[in-house]
């Protein structure tokens, strides 16, 4: 299981290749990459996090995913700091014997990272910067698990 919280950009292709090569016995690898949406007027996104708790929270979410589905391996990479529109914010990858488990675990990871990992996003536009509010739909998404 891999958890990385970093300011530096990551190469999603290289991450998936290394993850797949290390996931011996897997028949399926699923990955998701979140990108700063180039919404109209958006000039940047600043991501703040809670060093220490962030890593622990992500690890605990990954541990739950491993217990629930038969995962061979899981990876979460999440950036913080100032990001430009179009840049990758984060990625998850899951490896399992079959695709059903890999897809379900990746969705579970995304739903939980969204509202249970201590990150906060602030969007900059020409008029100023505003904190992104959590959506009720994100909290509701946890109920399906």
């Amino acid at each position: 299981m891999g958890v990385r919280v970093q300011a530096a950009p990551f190469d999603q292709g290289a991450e998936i290749a290394a993850f797949t090569a290390a996931a011996a016995g897997a028949g399926a690898v699923v990955s998701f990459t979140g990108i700063v949406r180039p919404d109209h007027g958006l000039t940047g996104m600043e991501i703040e996090h809670y060093p220490g708790m962030t890593e622990k929270a992500i690890r605990s979410i990954l541990d739950q995913a491993v217990r629930r589905w038969s995962l061979v391996d899981g990876l979460v990479v999440h950036r913080y700091g100032l990001l430009a529109p179009g840049e990758a914010i984060m990625m998850v990858a899951t490896a399992a014997p079959h695709r059903g488990d890999a897809f379900a675990a990746a969705e579970f990871l995304m739903d939980y990272l969204k509202s249970r990992a201590p990150f906060w996003k602030k969007e900059s536009r020409d008029g100023g910067a505003t904190w992104v509010a959590a959506r009720e739909a994100d909290e509701d998404a946890l109920k399906r698990w």
Binding site: S115, A117, F119
Partner: peptide, 8 residues
């Protein structure tokens, strides 16, 4: 103390 989280 913090607002609801917005990761992912």
């Amino acid at each position: 103390f913090f607002p609801p989280m917005t990761g992912g």
